[in-house]
Write a protein that binds this DNA or RNA. Structure first.
Length: 432
RNA sequence: GGAAGCGUGGCCGAGCGGUUUAAGGCACCGGUCUUGAAAACCGGCGAUGGGCAACCAUCCGUGAGUUCGAAUCUCACCGCUUCCGCCA
Protein backbone atom coordinates (compact mmCIF):
# COMPACT_ATOMS: atom_id res chain seq x y z
CA UNK A 1 0.00 0.00 0.00
CA UNK A 2 1.23 3.47 -0.83
CA UNK A 3 1.43 6.14 1.83
CA UNK A 4 -1.92 7.96 1.69
CA UNK A 5 -0.04 11.22 2.22
CA UNK A 6 1.74 10.66 -1.07
CA UNK A 7 -1.61 10.41 -2.82
CA UNK A 8 -2.96 13.47 -1.03
CA UNK A 9 0.04 15.71 -1.58
CA UNK A 10 1.64 14.50 -4.81
CA UNK A 11 -1.21 12.91 -6.72
CA UNK A 12 -0.11 14.06 -10.19
CA UNK A 13 3.40 12.66 -9.73
CA UNK A 14 2.03 9.33 -8.48
CA UNK A 15 -0.35 9.09 -11.43
CA UNK A 16 2.46 9.78 -13.89
CA UNK A 17 4.72 7.21 -12.28
CA UNK A 18 2.06 4.51 -12.19
CA UNK A 19 1.25 5.10 -15.83
CA UNK A 20 4.70 3.73 -16.67
CA UNK A 21 3.52 0.38 -15.36
CA UNK A 22 0.21 0.53 -17.15
CA UNK A 23 -1.90 1.45 -14.13
CA UNK A 24 -4.53 4.15 -14.36
CA UNK A 25 -5.84 5.88 -11.26
CA UNK A 26 -9.43 7.00 -10.79
CA UNK A 27 -8.36 10.41 -9.53
CA UNK A 28 -11.74 12.10 -9.91
CA UNK A 29 -13.57 9.84 -7.50
CA UNK A 30 -10.56 9.77 -5.18
CA UNK A 31 -10.42 13.56 -4.99
CA UNK A 32 -14.18 13.74 -4.38
CA UNK A 33 -13.87 11.22 -1.55
CA UNK A 34 -10.96 13.15 -0.06
CA UNK A 35 -12.89 16.42 -0.11
CA UNK A 36 -15.83 14.78 1.62
CA UNK A 37 -13.56 13.06 4.11
CA UNK A 38 -11.87 16.30 5.10
CA UNK A 39 -15.18 18.03 5.66
CA UNK A 40 -16.72 15.11 7.55
CA UNK A 41 -13.65 14.58 9.68
CA UNK A 42 -13.46 18.14 10.99
CA UNK A 43 -17.21 18.26 11.54
CA UNK A 44 -17.23 14.92 13.37
CA UNK A 45 -14.30 15.85 15.54
CA UNK A 46 -15.84 19.20 16.48
CA UNK A 47 -19.05 17.45 17.51
CA UNK A 48 -17.14 14.84 19.47
CA UNK A 49 -15.13 17.51 21.25
CA UNK A 50 -18.35 19.33 22.22
CA UNK A 51 -19.94 16.10 23.47
CA UNK A 52 -16.87 15.21 25.48
CA UNK A 53 -16.67 18.55 27.22
CA UNK A 54 -20.42 18.58 27.96
CA UNK A 55 -20.27 15.06 29.34
CA UNK A 56 -17.41 16.08 31.56
CA UNK A 57 -19.43 19.07 32.82
CA UNK A 58 -22.35 16.79 33.60
CA UNK A 59 -20.10 14.59 35.65
CA UNK A 60 -18.73 17.54 37.58
CA UNK A 61 -22.17 19.06 38.17
CA UNK A 62 -23.54 15.76 39.41
CA UNK A 63 -20.56 15.25 41.68
CA UNK A 64 -21.35 18.61 43.29
CA UNK A 65 -25.03 17.76 43.44
CA UNK A 66 -25.97 20.62 41.09
CA UNK A 67 -28.52 20.72 38.31
CA UNK A 68 -27.28 19.36 34.97
CA UNK A 69 -30.41 19.43 32.84
CA UNK A 70 -29.14 22.30 30.64
CA UNK A 71 -26.02 20.43 29.61
CA UNK A 72 -28.02 17.21 29.23
CA UNK A 73 -30.37 18.92 26.81
CA UNK A 74 -27.60 20.39 24.70
CA UNK A 75 -25.75 17.10 24.40
CA UNK A 76 -29.00 15.34 23.51
CA UNK A 77 -29.36 17.75 20.60
CA UNK A 78 -25.94 16.72 19.35
CA UNK A 79 -26.83 13.06 19.19
CA UNK A 80 -28.35 12.66 15.74
CA UNK A 81 -25.95 14.95 13.91
CA UNK A 82 -22.98 13.25 15.53
CA UNK A 83 -24.17 9.75 14.79
CA UNK A 84 -24.89 10.65 11.20
CA UNK A 85 -21.54 12.30 10.75
CA UNK A 86 -19.62 9.39 12.31
CA UNK A 87 -21.38 6.81 10.19
CA UNK A 88 -20.85 8.69 6.95
CA UNK A 89 -17.19 9.29 7.82
CA UNK A 90 -16.69 5.57 8.43
CA UNK A 91 -18.16 4.79 5.02
CA UNK A 92 -15.97 7.36 3.27
CA UNK A 93 -12.82 6.20 5.05
CA UNK A 94 -13.64 2.64 4.09
CA UNK A 95 -14.05 3.63 0.45
CA UNK A 96 -10.75 5.51 0.49
CA UNK A 97 -8.98 2.54 2.05
CA UNK A 98 -10.49 0.16 -0.48
CA UNK A 99 -9.27 2.40 -3.26
CA UNK A 100 -5.74 2.78 -1.91
CA UNK A 101 -5.54 -1.00 -1.42
CA UNK A 102 -5.88 -1.49 -5.18
CA UNK A 103 -3.11 0.95 -6.12
CA UNK A 104 0.14 -0.85 -7.09
CA UNK A 105 3.58 0.08 -5.81
CA UNK A 106 5.67 2.81 -7.41
CA UNK A 107 8.52 1.47 -9.55
CA UNK A 108 11.99 2.38 -8.31
CA UNK A 109 13.73 5.01 -10.43
CA UNK A 110 16.21 2.42 -11.74
CA UNK A 111 13.48 0.23 -13.25
CA UNK A 112 13.47 0.26 -17.07
CA UNK A 113 10.31 1.65 -18.64
CA UNK A 114 8.31 -0.79 -20.70
CA UNK A 115 4.86 -2.20 -21.33
CA UNK A 116 5.48 -5.96 -21.46
CA UNK A 117 8.16 -8.59 -20.92
CA UNK A 118 9.66 -7.38 -24.20
CA UNK A 119 10.87 -4.34 -22.26
CA UNK A 120 12.85 -6.35 -19.72
CA UNK A 121 16.59 -5.79 -19.75
CA UNK A 122 19.22 -8.49 -19.49
CA UNK A 123 21.80 -7.38 -16.95
CA UNK A 124 23.89 -10.52 -16.51
CA UNK A 125 24.55 -13.83 -18.24
CA UNK A 126 26.33 -16.79 -16.64
CA UNK A 127 27.47 -20.14 -18.09
CA UNK A 128 27.46 -21.47 -21.62
CA UNK A 129 24.54 -23.50 -22.93
CA UNK A 130 25.77 -26.96 -23.77
CA UNK A 131 25.78 -28.06 -27.39
CA UNK A 132 24.26 -31.49 -28.01
CA UNK A 133 25.51 -34.01 -30.55
CA UNK A 134 22.10 -35.67 -30.47
CA UNK A 135 18.55 -34.38 -30.54
CA UNK A 136 17.88 -32.89 -27.10
CA UNK A 137 14.64 -34.11 -25.56
CA UNK A 138 12.39 -32.16 -23.24
CA UNK A 139 11.89 -33.08 -19.62
CA UNK A 140 8.56 -34.79 -20.30
CA UNK A 141 10.16 -37.36 -22.58
CA UNK A 142 13.25 -37.69 -20.42
CA UNK A 143 11.16 -38.19 -17.30
CA UNK A 144 8.88 -40.70 -18.97
CA UNK A 145 11.86 -42.70 -20.25
CA UNK A 146 13.24 -42.79 -16.72
CA UNK A 147 9.89 -44.03 -15.49
CA UNK A 148 9.93 -41.10 -13.10
CA UNK A 149 7.40 -38.63 -14.42
CA UNK A 150 3.77 -39.44 -15.11
CA UNK A 151 1.56 -36.55 -16.07
CA UNK A 152 -1.30 -38.71 -17.34
CA UNK A 153 -1.86 -40.40 -14.02
CA UNK A 154 -1.87 -36.97 -12.38
CA UNK A 155 -4.73 -35.98 -14.68
CA UNK A 156 -6.65 -39.00 -13.41
CA UNK A 157 -6.00 -38.14 -9.79
CA UNK A 158 -6.44 -34.37 -9.90
CA UNK A 159 -6.63 -32.90 -13.40
CA UNK A 160 -4.43 -30.90 -15.72
CA UNK A 161 -1.39 -29.04 -14.38
CA UNK A 162 -0.45 -31.60 -11.75
CA UNK A 163 2.33 -34.14 -11.79
CA UNK A 164 3.27 -37.45 -10.28
CA UNK A 165 6.96 -38.21 -9.83
CA UNK A 166 8.46 -41.53 -8.84
CA UNK A 167 11.76 -43.19 -8.06
CA UNK A 168 14.95 -41.33 -8.91
CA UNK A 169 13.15 -38.31 -10.32
CA UNK A 170 11.09 -37.89 -7.14
CA UNK A 171 14.26 -38.33 -5.15
CA UNK A 172 16.09 -35.71 -7.19
CA UNK A 173 13.18 -33.32 -6.63
CA UNK A 174 13.54 -33.85 -2.88
CA UNK A 175 17.33 -33.61 -3.08
CA UNK A 176 17.11 -30.25 -4.85
CA UNK A 177 14.96 -28.78 -2.07
CA UNK A 178 17.28 -30.14 0.64
CA UNK A 179 20.34 -28.84 -1.19
CA UNK A 180 18.82 -25.37 -1.52
CA UNK A 181 17.80 -25.24 2.14
CA UNK A 182 21.21 -26.39 3.33
CA UNK A 183 23.01 -23.88 1.12
CA UNK A 184 20.90 -20.93 2.24
CA UNK A 185 21.06 -21.81 5.92
CA UNK A 186 24.68 -23.00 5.97
CA UNK A 187 26.33 -20.63 3.50
CA UNK A 188 24.07 -17.60 3.27
CA UNK A 189 22.93 -17.15 6.86
CA UNK A 190 19.17 -17.65 6.52
CA UNK A 191 17.02 -19.12 9.28
CA UNK A 192 14.91 -22.06 8.21
CA UNK A 193 11.17 -21.64 8.72
CA UNK A 194 8.28 -24.07 8.58
CA UNK A 195 5.01 -22.25 7.93
CA UNK A 196 1.31 -22.90 7.27
CA UNK A 197 0.19 -23.72 3.73
CA UNK A 198 -3.29 -22.39 4.45
CA UNK A 199 -3.57 -18.74 5.45
CA UNK A 200 -6.36 -16.29 6.20
CA UNK A 201 -7.49 -13.43 3.97
CA UNK A 202 -5.68 -10.85 6.09
CA UNK A 203 -2.33 -12.45 5.37
CA UNK A 204 -3.08 -12.48 1.65
CA UNK A 205 -4.07 -8.82 1.84
CA UNK A 206 -0.90 -7.81 3.63
CA UNK A 207 1.46 -9.21 1.01
CA UNK A 208 -0.73 -7.86 -1.80
CA UNK A 209 -2.40 -10.95 -3.31
CA UNK A 210 -5.78 -9.66 -2.13
CA UNK A 211 -8.02 -7.92 -2.89
CA UNK A 212 -7.05 -7.73 -6.57
CA UNK A 213 -5.88 -11.23 -7.43
CA UNK A 214 -8.32 -13.60 -5.77
CA UNK A 215 -8.82 -15.45 -9.07
CA UNK A 216 -5.19 -16.60 -8.97
CA UNK A 217 -5.70 -18.34 -5.63
CA UNK A 218 -7.24 -21.56 -4.37
CA UNK A 219 -9.67 -20.98 -1.52
CA UNK A 220 -10.87 -23.44 1.09
CA UNK A 221 -14.33 -22.97 2.57
CA UNK A 222 -15.34 -24.39 5.92
CA UNK A 223 -18.67 -24.48 7.70
CA UNK A 224 -19.00 -21.61 10.12
CA UNK A 225 -15.43 -20.44 9.75
CA UNK A 226 -13.56 -17.92 7.64
CA UNK A 227 -12.29 -18.92 4.23
CA UNK A 228 -8.67 -19.96 4.06
CA UNK A 229 -6.39 -19.78 1.06
CA UNK A 230 -3.70 -22.14 -0.17
CA UNK A 231 -0.48 -20.17 -0.36
CA UNK A 232 0.75 -19.25 -3.85
CA UNK A 233 4.23 -18.74 -2.37
CA UNK A 234 5.88 -19.01 1.05
CA UNK A 235 6.29 -15.25 0.85
CA UNK A 236 2.79 -14.94 2.28
CA UNK A 237 3.10 -16.81 5.61
CA UNK A 238 6.77 -15.94 6.14
CA UNK A 239 6.48 -12.19 5.52
CA UNK A 240 3.41 -12.08 7.76
CA UNK A 241 5.54 -13.31 10.66
CA UNK A 242 6.38 -9.67 11.39
CA UNK A 243 2.85 -8.34 10.91
CA UNK A 244 1.69 -5.95 13.65
CA UNK A 245 5.11 -5.99 15.27
CA UNK A 246 7.46 -3.25 16.36
CA UNK A 247 10.89 -4.84 16.16
CA UNK A 248 13.95 -3.68 18.02
CA UNK A 249 16.52 -2.12 15.69
CA UNK A 250 19.01 -4.82 16.68
CA UNK A 251 16.65 -7.52 15.41
CA UNK A 252 17.21 -6.46 11.80
CA UNK A 253 17.84 -7.80 9.30
CA UNK A 254 15.72 -10.93 9.50
CA UNK A 255 16.62 -13.54 6.89
CA UNK A 256 14.26 -16.49 6.45
CA UNK A 257 14.27 -19.45 4.09
CA UNK A 258 11.22 -21.66 3.73
CA UNK A 259 10.42 -24.66 1.59
CA UNK A 260 6.73 -25.10 0.79
CA UNK A 261 4.44 -26.31 -1.91
CA UNK A 262 2.80 -23.42 -3.77
CA UNK A 263 -0.68 -23.43 -5.26
CA UNK A 264 -1.77 -21.22 -8.15
CA UNK A 265 -4.96 -21.44 -10.12
CA UNK A 266 -3.22 -20.11 -13.26
CA UNK A 267 -6.44 -18.45 -14.30
CA UNK A 268 -5.79 -16.46 -17.44
CA UNK A 269 -2.92 -18.67 -18.59
CA UNK A 270 -4.98 -21.21 -20.52
CA UNK A 271 -2.95 -22.67 -23.32
CA UNK A 272 0.38 -21.42 -21.99
CA UNK A 273 3.02 -24.01 -21.08
CA UNK A 274 0.45 -26.78 -21.18
CA UNK A 275 3.11 -29.42 -21.79
CA UNK A 276 5.18 -30.61 -18.87
CA UNK A 277 5.98 -29.29 -15.43
CA UNK A 278 6.68 -25.66 -16.25
CA UNK A 279 3.31 -24.27 -15.15
CA UNK A 280 1.54 -26.31 -12.47
CA UNK A 281 -1.27 -25.77 -9.99
CA UNK A 282 1.02 -27.23 -7.32
CA UNK A 283 4.79 -26.87 -7.22
CA UNK A 284 7.51 -26.71 -4.60
CA UNK A 285 9.59 -23.64 -4.00
CA UNK A 286 12.35 -22.63 -1.62
CA UNK A 287 11.72 -19.01 -0.77
CA UNK A 288 14.05 -16.39 0.67
CA UNK A 289 12.44 -13.59 2.70
CA UNK A 290 14.20 -10.61 4.24
CA UNK A 291 13.04 -7.91 6.64
CA UNK A 292 15.39 -4.93 6.37
CA UNK A 293 15.97 -1.37 7.48
CA UNK A 294 14.97 0.97 4.65
CA UNK A 295 18.52 2.15 4.05
CA UNK A 296 19.73 -1.43 3.60
CA UNK A 297 17.04 -2.84 1.34
CA UNK A 298 18.69 -2.14 -2.03
CA UNK A 299 21.93 -3.77 -1.00
CA UNK A 300 19.83 -6.64 0.36
CA UNK A 301 18.11 -7.11 -3.01
CA UNK A 302 21.51 -7.46 -4.70
CA UNK A 303 22.63 -9.94 -2.06
CA UNK A 304 19.44 -11.97 -2.12
CA UNK A 305 19.56 -12.21 -5.91
CA UNK A 306 23.16 -13.42 -5.69
CA UNK A 307 22.08 -16.06 -3.16
CA UNK A 308 19.51 -17.40 -5.63
CA UNK A 309 22.10 -17.30 -8.42
CA UNK A 310 24.50 -19.28 -6.26
CA UNK A 311 22.18 -22.28 -6.45
CA UNK A 312 22.17 -22.18 -10.24
CA UNK A 313 25.95 -21.84 -10.29
CA UNK A 314 26.49 -24.72 -7.87
CA UNK A 315 24.28 -26.84 -10.14
CA UNK A 316 26.18 -25.50 -13.15
CA UNK A 317 23.02 -24.40 -14.91
CA UNK A 318 23.39 -21.53 -17.41
CA UNK A 319 21.18 -18.54 -16.62
CA UNK A 320 20.66 -14.86 -17.15
CA UNK A 321 19.42 -12.10 -14.88
CA UNK A 322 16.68 -9.82 -16.16
CA UNK A 323 15.68 -6.46 -14.73
CA UNK A 324 11.91 -6.44 -15.16
CA UNK A 325 10.51 -3.34 -16.79
CA UNK A 326 7.75 -1.22 -15.25
CA UNK A 327 5.01 -2.98 -17.23
CA UNK A 328 6.02 -6.52 -16.25
CA UNK A 329 6.47 -6.15 -12.49
CA UNK A 330 4.18 -7.59 -9.85
CA UNK A 331 1.62 -5.45 -8.02
CA UNK A 332 3.60 -5.00 -4.79
CA UNK A 333 7.10 -4.71 -6.17
CA UNK A 334 9.30 -1.62 -6.43
CA UNK A 335 11.91 -3.53 -8.41
CA UNK A 336 12.25 -7.12 -9.56
CA UNK A 337 15.04 -9.22 -11.00
CA UNK A 338 13.99 -12.43 -12.70
CA UNK A 339 16.48 -15.25 -13.07
CA UNK A 340 16.01 -17.31 -16.20
CA UNK A 341 17.56 -20.75 -16.63
CA UNK A 342 18.57 -22.23 -19.95
CA UNK A 343 16.25 -24.98 -21.19
CA UNK A 344 17.80 -26.83 -24.16
CA UNK A 345 14.56 -28.36 -25.40
CA UNK A 346 12.95 -24.93 -25.64
CA UNK A 347 16.18 -23.36 -26.84
CA UNK A 348 15.33 -20.49 -24.50
CA UNK A 349 15.84 -19.02 -21.07
CA UNK A 350 12.85 -19.53 -18.76
CA UNK A 351 11.99 -17.91 -15.43
CA UNK A 352 13.14 -19.91 -12.41
CA UNK A 353 13.36 -17.18 -9.76
CA UNK A 354 11.92 -13.77 -9.09
CA UNK A 355 13.65 -11.47 -6.58
CA UNK A 356 11.90 -8.29 -5.45
CA UNK A 357 12.21 -5.36 -3.12
CA UNK A 358 8.79 -4.22 -1.94
CA UNK A 359 10.18 -1.33 0.10
CA UNK A 360 7.47 -0.32 2.63
CA UNK A 361 4.54 -1.40 0.43
CA UNK A 362 3.84 -4.67 2.24
CA UNK A 363 5.10 -3.36 5.59
CA UNK A 364 2.50 -0.57 5.52
CA UNK A 365 -0.28 -3.08 4.91
CA UNK A 366 1.11 -5.29 7.68
CA UNK A 367 2.03 -2.50 10.11
CA UNK A 368 5.45 -4.13 10.37
CA UNK A 369 7.74 -1.62 12.00
CA UNK A 370 10.98 -1.24 13.88
CA UNK A 371 12.19 1.33 16.37
CA UNK A 372 14.95 3.24 14.59
CA UNK A 373 17.51 5.75 15.80
CA UNK A 374 14.89 8.49 16.00
CA UNK A 375 13.03 6.46 18.62
CA UNK A 376 9.85 6.53 16.54
CA UNK A 377 8.49 3.35 14.95
CA UNK A 378 9.36 3.19 11.24
CA UNK A 379 8.09 0.83 8.57
CA UNK A 380 10.53 -1.93 7.62
CA UNK A 381 11.29 -2.90 4.05
CA UNK A 382 10.44 -6.41 2.90
CA UNK A 383 12.05 -8.47 0.15
CA UNK A 384 11.78 -11.94 -1.21
CA UNK A 385 13.02 -14.17 -3.95
CA UNK A 386 12.81 -17.75 -5.08
CA UNK A 387 15.88 -19.68 -4.22
CA UNK A 388 14.70 -21.53 -6.37
CA UNK A 389 11.49 -22.92 -7.83
CA UNK A 390 12.14 -26.62 -7.23
CA UNK A 391 10.01 -28.08 -10.04
CA UNK A 392 11.54 -25.87 -12.69
CA UNK A 393 15.02 -26.57 -11.33
CA UNK A 394 14.31 -30.27 -11.76
CA UNK A 395 13.21 -29.59 -15.33
CA UNK A 396 16.44 -27.69 -15.95
CA UNK A 397 18.62 -30.46 -14.50
CA UNK A 398 16.87 -33.18 -16.49
CA UNK A 399 17.21 -31.26 -19.74
CA UNK A 400 20.73 -29.86 -19.27
CA UNK A 401 22.20 -33.10 -17.90
CA UNK A 402 20.54 -35.54 -20.33
CA UNK A 403 22.68 -38.07 -22.20
CA UNK A 404 22.29 -39.69 -25.59
CA UNK A 405 21.25 -43.01 -24.01
CA UNK A 406 18.34 -41.39 -22.17
CA UNK A 407 20.07 -41.32 -18.80
CA UNK A 408 20.64 -38.16 -16.75
CA UNK A 409 23.88 -37.31 -14.96
CA UNK A 410 23.33 -36.24 -11.34
CA UNK A 411 24.99 -32.83 -10.75
CA UNK A 412 27.96 -33.09 -8.36
CA UNK A 413 26.32 -30.84 -5.81
CA UNK A 414 23.30 -33.13 -5.55
CA UNK A 415 25.12 -36.43 -5.14
CA UNK A 416 25.51 -36.19 -1.35
CA UNK A 417 21.73 -35.84 -1.20
CA UNK A 418 21.17 -38.91 -3.37
CA UNK A 419 23.33 -41.46 -1.64
CA UNK A 420 26.23 -40.80 -4.00
CA UNK A 421 24.19 -41.71 -7.06
CA UNK A 422 25.90 -40.44 -10.24
CA UNK A 423 23.30 -41.13 -12.89
CA UNK A 424 19.57 -41.70 -13.32
CA UNK A 425 19.20 -44.50 -15.82
CA UNK A 426 16.06 -45.95 -17.38
CA UNK A 427 17.05 -49.54 -16.67
CA UNK A 428 17.87 -49.03 -13.02
CA UNK A 429 14.72 -47.09 -12.27
CA UNK A 430 12.73 -49.93 -10.75
CA UNK A 431 15.45 -50.63 -8.21
CA UNK A 432 15.55 -47.14 -6.75
C1' G B 1 -16.21 -31.65 21.61
C1' G B 2 -17.31 -30.14 27.27
C1' A B 3 -16.03 -26.73 31.54
C1' A B 4 -13.69 -22.52 33.68
C1' G B 5 -10.66 -18.25 33.34
C1' C B 6 -8.30 -14.33 30.59
C1' G B 7 -7.26 -10.54 26.33
C1' U B 8 -4.95 -2.84 28.70
C1' G B 9 0.98 1.04 25.46
C1' G B 10 7.73 -2.02 23.14
C1' C B 11 7.15 -5.54 27.70
C1' C B 12 4.88 -6.51 32.70
C1' G B 13 0.70 -4.77 35.18
C1' A B 14 -3.34 -1.60 38.02
C1' G B 15 -8.02 0.26 36.78
C1' C B 16 -14.45 -2.80 36.61
C1' G B 17 -19.68 4.03 34.77
C1' G B 18 -17.57 10.56 35.57
C1' U B 19 -10.09 14.25 39.11
C1' U B 20 -8.05 8.35 33.45
C1' U B 21 -5.46 13.67 30.79
C1' A B 22 -4.92 4.98 31.19
C1' A B 23 -1.60 4.39 37.97
C1' G B 24 3.02 1.85 38.90
C1' G B 25 7.23 -0.87 37.17
C1' C B 26 10.73 -2.58 33.26
C1' A B 27 13.02 -1.12 28.79
C1' C B 28 14.55 3.23 26.16
C1' C B 29 16.38 8.63 25.69
C1' G B 30 18.59 13.12 28.06
C1' G B 31 20.99 15.14 32.46
C1' U B 32 23.67 15.16 37.48
C1' C B 33 27.57 12.31 39.75
C1' U B 34 32.19 9.40 37.90
C1' U B 35 38.89 8.76 35.07
C1' G B 36 35.19 5.57 32.47
C1' A B 37 31.14 2.33 33.35
C1' A B 38 27.49 0.56 36.76
C1' A B 39 24.39 2.11 40.73
C1' A B 40 21.74 6.22 42.66
C1' C B 41 19.09 10.69 41.74
C1' C B 42 16.41 14.34 38.32
C1' G B 43 13.69 14.84 33.81
C1' G B 44 11.52 12.81 29.33
C1' C B 45 8.97 8.79 27.06
C1' G B 46 2.32 5.06 23.43
C1' A B 47 0.10 4.74 18.37
C1' U B 48 -2.86 6.69 14.35
C1' G B 49 -5.35 10.70 11.94
C1' G B 50 -6.68 16.24 11.22
C1' G B 51 -4.35 21.32 11.41
C1' C B 52 1.29 20.54 10.83
C1' A B 53 2.12 25.36 15.96
C1' A B 54 -0.87 25.59 20.11
C1' C B 55 -4.73 22.15 19.98
C1' C B 56 -8.44 18.43 18.63
C1' A B 57 -10.15 13.46 17.62
C1' U B 58 -9.69 8.16 17.73
C1' C B 59 -7.49 3.70 19.90
C1' C B 60 -7.73 -0.83 26.20
C1' G B 61 -8.74 -8.41 21.18
C1' U B 62 -12.84 -7.39 17.01
C1' G B 63 -17.86 -5.81 16.01
C1' A B 64 -22.64 -4.31 17.61
C1' G B 65 -25.57 -2.34 21.79
C1' U B 66 -26.99 0.39 26.63
C1' U B 67 -25.72 5.58 28.47
C1' C B 68 -25.39 12.58 28.61
C1' G B 69 -20.66 9.79 29.33
C1' A B 70 -17.78 2.92 28.43
C1' A B 71 -11.14 0.11 29.32
C1' U B 72 -15.25 -0.51 32.97
C1' C B 73 -22.14 -2.81 31.77
C1' U B 74 -24.82 -6.26 27.76
C1' C B 75 -24.57 -9.47 23.33
C1' A B 76 -21.92 -11.86 19.35
C1' C B 77 -17.37 -13.23 17.31
C1' C B 78 -11.93 -14.07 17.39
C1' G B 79 -7.72 -15.53 20.14
C1' C B 80 -5.00 -17.37 24.46
C1' U B 81 -4.53 -20.32 29.12
C1' U B 82 -5.95 -24.43 32.35
C1' C B 83 -8.68 -29.03 33.20
C1' C B 84 -11.51 -33.18 30.90
C1' G B 85 -12.49 -36.00 26.31
C1' C B 86 -10.51 -37.36 21.51
C1' C B 87 -6.29 -37.73 18.40
C1' A B 88 -0.92 -38.15 14.60
Amino acid sequence: MLDIQLLRNHLAAVVARLETRGATLETTSFLALETERKDLQTRTQDLQARRNSLSKQIGQLKARGEDSTGAMQEVAGLGDALKHSEERLAVVLEEINAFVATVPNLPHESVPIGTSDAGNVEVKRWGNPRSFDFAAQDHVDIGAALGGLDLDVAVKISGARFSVMKGGVARMHRALAQFMLDTHTGEHGYTEVYAPYLVNAKSMFCTGQLPKFEEDLFGVLRDGADKLYLIPTAEVPVTNIVRDQILGAEALPLKFVCHTPCFRSEAGSYGRDTRGMIRQHQFDKVELVRIERPEDSWAALKELTAHAEAILELLDLPYRRMALCTGDMGFSSAKTYDLEVWLPAQNAYREISSCSNFEAFQARRMQARFRGDKGKPELVHTLNGSGLAVGRTLVAVLENYQQADGSVIVPQALRPYMGGLERLAPASESRL
